[in-house]
């Protein structure tokens, strides 16, 4: 089937993503930030759908929104919000922040300028039905070793977090 009203959806979703991303860093209340993050992630999932990557979109929802943000909220809820709002946080390092932002912006511009020749104009159209199989084949056949290394890395991180958080195991 043909996609419906693609440009509108694209701009709408992008606007939501950007606005809520701004919300994530602008809100003083961490719970509001986390909720804004949910909207960013959901609109990203929508963008993935438009790129004919439904599997990635589904995983985005199930893992990031359903799992990770829930854990974020879980932790944030326990923090004393009033004390949090009074604290003056990273704002003093605005010079570093500015530099980092400028570098990132430059990177984006460079990719935009140079990328037009490097990347094809249109995304390669996989048959929609086979998307999941394609992802599976990539992960478990073509790039099995990097995939396993990445999961090992995650495991190390989890063990480290547990050791740090819990004094007595």
């Amino acid at each position: 089937m043909d996609p419906v009203a693609t440009p509108y959806f694209f701009y709408g979703l992008s606007a939501v993503a950007v606005l809520s991303a701004v919300g994530v860093i602008m809100r003083r209340n961490p719970v509001h930030s986390a909720i804004a993050l949910i909207f960013t992630l959901l609109s990203l999932a929508g963008l993935y759908l438009m790129l004919y990557a439904p599997f990635v979109a589904g995983v985005q929802i199930i893992l990031y929104v359903g799992g990770i943000v829930v854990l974020f909220l879980f932790v944030i809820m326990l923090i004393n919000i009033e004390r949090m709002q009074r604290e003056y946080q990273f704002n003093k390092q605005w010079l570093v922040g500015l530099l980092a932002a400028a570098a990132l912006g430059a990177l984006f511009v460079a990719v935009y300028v140079k990328g037009q020749s490097i990347f094809p104009q249109h995304a390669v159209r996989f048959p929609e039905q086979l998307n999941t199989q394609q992802v599976g084949k990539m992960l478990y056949v073509d790039y099995l070793l990097p995939f396993e290394i990445a999961s090992l890395l995650l495991l190390v991180a989890i063990v480290g977090a547990v050791v740090m958080a819990k004094k007595r195991i």
Partner: peptide
């Protein structure tokens, strides 16, 4: 084509509402 994934994902979002309500 990702029906079951979609269902599980969206069903898991319900907990967000519960957390928001509680907080």
């Amino acid at each position: 084509n990702i029906g079951i994934l979609f269902m599980l994902g969206v069903a898991s979002l319900g907990t967000l509402g519960i957390i928001m309500a509680g907080w």
